[in-house]
Write a protein that binds this DNA or RNA. Structure first.
Lengths: 251, 251
DNA sequence: CGTCCGTTTGAGCTTAATCAACGGACGTGG
DNA sequence: CCACGTCCGTTGATTAAGCTCAAACGGACG
């Protein structure tokens, strides 16, 4: 009855051969800083993950922030009866902060495909916050963005129709991944299967399939293989974006 | 078709006569500090609101945090087509922070009943963060709690049934308002009407009514007048709480 | 006494979930 | 090389949860 996140299988993807070219430096919030090099030394070594492998699990001690270096990770929550929801996706450069208000993680963090993350433990992060006001300021902004994203997601779920929810998710992921408004010509890598889209939109994969078909039929977008094309970005945005204030989020 | 938040009407509630007894000091995160007095001088004077009156509106410049002193406020978002969603409720002692990542507020903040808030503008807050590490640390934790609440809400919406969603909302509000697990004997003031419960659970008020009837029939809870009684807290918790990790939130 | 909210009830309809089955892509092993 | 299993996406038929529309009721308040 419940659709679950896929688990890591050795066969699913070969072990990451060495360190992939970094799309963005660890500690995303700092990527423009001159002192990145110095800060990086405070990080733990990079951690390579297979598809489905967990960075951490719900209930684990939450004492470490992670920055996604490559690949996507899903932050998901599982209820006692086994039903899972994806709360958000973290893309390269995004931060998955530890939870200051609780000892243990209230959600899991799972690699969607092969991914690389880089941890920063609590005491070191606090040291950074103290000693590097610039880092601190950016990190605070990042926190705000994460909250805004959560509210965006809430509004999308509440808003309603399956079409709007799926369009919203894909629009958001495209914009975040490009760091700009998508164009019709863009071919955007989206390493999600329909089960995962369902978990993130609160739809069954069956209905995700039908919804994608409907969106394709209307010429709005196309998702095949692991590539997304938004043929009519304006219409997708209209369908998905709740209000003018949210448009600023993706820049 | 869309259910809206009620607007402020002078007749709905008389102007707040003077300053109500403070349930909690402004700047909730600071309430245990010795230096509250000094910090309060940094706050703007208290602001009294009528039911339905806005603390700020979606799109307004977001340059000020608010602490709820008395009453409840709803943080809500309205889509271009007029549909509203309540993202969260802020109770006395809770903070409604400004949005660091954006110039303008992505949501409105509206008093549910007569309420008192107290603003703190951005520069003063930054001054506090710099000069009072203790304040700062608590504020960071508060931010984390707000995010956790958002995820909790997301999980609740995704999880499901109308009964679970309504039970979740009432359980959460009861626990937060009591700052402990509710007992069967507790009579908890919940100043919400069924339209507002609907906006917060993504249900029509019609279905809220039917859902409440079902919950009442099963002996789980009773919401009459503006008072809530959880006759069977354990069952309500089971129905509403997603996982063990979330239970820690309300303490 | 009449009006206005907020709530309740009923009937019909729409959306998405459920159940079941099928087909293609891919990798494995014979 | 082909048979096999698995994963993923698709399709059809049926069911159920919740929405819409419409109406009526009750209390609060003027």
């Amino acid at each position: 009855m419940n659709y679950m996140l896929p688990q890591a299988h050795a066969r699913l993807s070969p072990r990451c051969a060495g360190c992939p070219a970094r799309e963005r430096a660890p500690c995303g919030a700092m990527r423009d800083e001159a002192s990145v090099g110095a800060l990086e030394r405070l990080h733990a070594p990079l951690r390579h993950l297979l598809a489905g492998e967990a960075v951490f699990d719900q209930g684990d001690p939450s004492d470490r922030s992670y920055t996604v270096v490559s690949g996507w990770v899903a932050i998901s929550r599982t209820t006692f009866d086994g039903a899972a929801t994806i709360l958000r996706f973290a893309l390269p450069g995004d931060v998955v902060p530890f939870e200051r208000h609780a000892r243990n993680a209230s959600a899991s963090c799972v690699a969607v495909g092969p991914a690389t993350v880089c941890g920063l433990n609590r005491s070191r992060q606090e040291q950074l916050e103290r000693d590097h006001p610039e880092y601190d300021a950016r990190h605070r902004v990042e926190q705000g963005r994460i909250l805004a994203l959560a509210y965006e997601q809430l509004a999308a779920l509440a808003m309603g129709s399956a079409k709007a929810r799926v369009a919203h998710l894909l629009w958001e992921l495209a914009s975040r991944s490009l760091r700009r408004r998508p164009l019709p010509s863009d071919q955007i890598p989206v390493p999600l299967n329909q089960v995962q889209i369902g978990l993130a939109t609160s739809l069954t994969p069956i209905h995700v399939s039908r919804t994608l078909r409907a969106l394709r039929a209307e010429g709005l977008l196309e998702l095949k293989g692991r590539w997304l094309a938004l043929h009519n970005p304006a219409a997708v945005e209209r369908l998905s974006v709740a209000s003018a204030e949210t448009a600023a989020l993706w820049a």
